[in-house]
Design a protein around this nucleic acid. Structure first.
Lengths: 138, 138
DNA sequence: CTATATGCAAAATTTTTGCATCGTT
DNA sequence: AACGATGCAAAAATTTTGCATATAG
């Protein structure tokens, strides 16, 4: 069961077609991988997962990630220095970086309240603490 | 007038010496630049500012930034994809990225309240909105 | 059939590393 | 004088680009 509200491959396929883009095997593989992952993969992770060279080349992975991001179908997450991570969950949400295992978890927007000088504001929060798994291993 | 509570070169010098590190010309130049900037410079910005090759080489800039960060004297800020920015303000604070001019402003911790499921938690917020300057230009 | 996407390989970035020399302490 | 820091240049690592071929619509 997926508690995160990630994009679905079907929805991404529909949006690509709407915009006149082809639904190719590489794009399908990359899209499925992104939608099934909650690990906020880097471009290199995606390339490794879809099989570097077989299903998609490096260039295609970068092209596809950029295309999906430009269409607002995925988004980038800045969590760790120098690494650009991708997230198929485009709903407003926050992140928690585990101080023990280093994993990056989604935090639903409903669980968080943020205000700037009392005003509501567009904000994205990066929490640091224990992820669910590490918290349950005392 | 500097409203931000950045580190001072004197304090950084003292900490370096405490840890047995030398206070050299390149480190002085890099430190002064970082302490006088509120623009959250990248490594390339630092290199350009201190004079690439003359005052400090590329390697020295990276070495110094890493050293200062390891000692907790500066910190990295993740604001824009693929870029690592540095901040001499190590006090707890947040950032605001201006949606008009793209600048990155510090936001004092006192101006913000954040909670995760009602709990206090270590959090760093990235706001998006109008910076002071852009807000005053209607 | 036409336009677009792909793969490969080369180029442009950005960061790291090795090593002889120089400068602080 | 000794140890650490610097600079240079070469090597990794990451992302972008050009172009011929393959594929979707």
């Amino acid at each position: 069961m997926q508690s995160h509200s990630a994009q679905t491959p079907e929805r991404i396929e529909a949006r690509l077609r709407e915009h006149g883009h082809a639904w190719t095997a590489p794009r399908r593989a990359i899209t499925h991988f992104l939608c099934s992952s909650t690990a906020h993969p880097t471009a290199a992770d995606v390339l490794a997962a879809v099989g570097g060279g077989h299903a998609s080349s490096r260039a295609t992975v970068y092209n596809t990630l950029t295309l999906l991001e430009d269409l607002g179908l995925i988004r980038t997450v800045l969590m760790t220095p120098g690494e650009v991570r991708y997230d198929a969950n485009v709903a407003r949400h926050h992140h928690l970086v585990c101080t023990v295992c280093g994993s990056v978890e989604d935090v639903p927007a409903e669980d968080v309240s943020v205000s700037l000088r009392g005003q509501a504001a567009m904000a994205e929060v990066r929490f640091e603490g224990l992820c669910v798994r590490c918290a349950n291993v005392p």
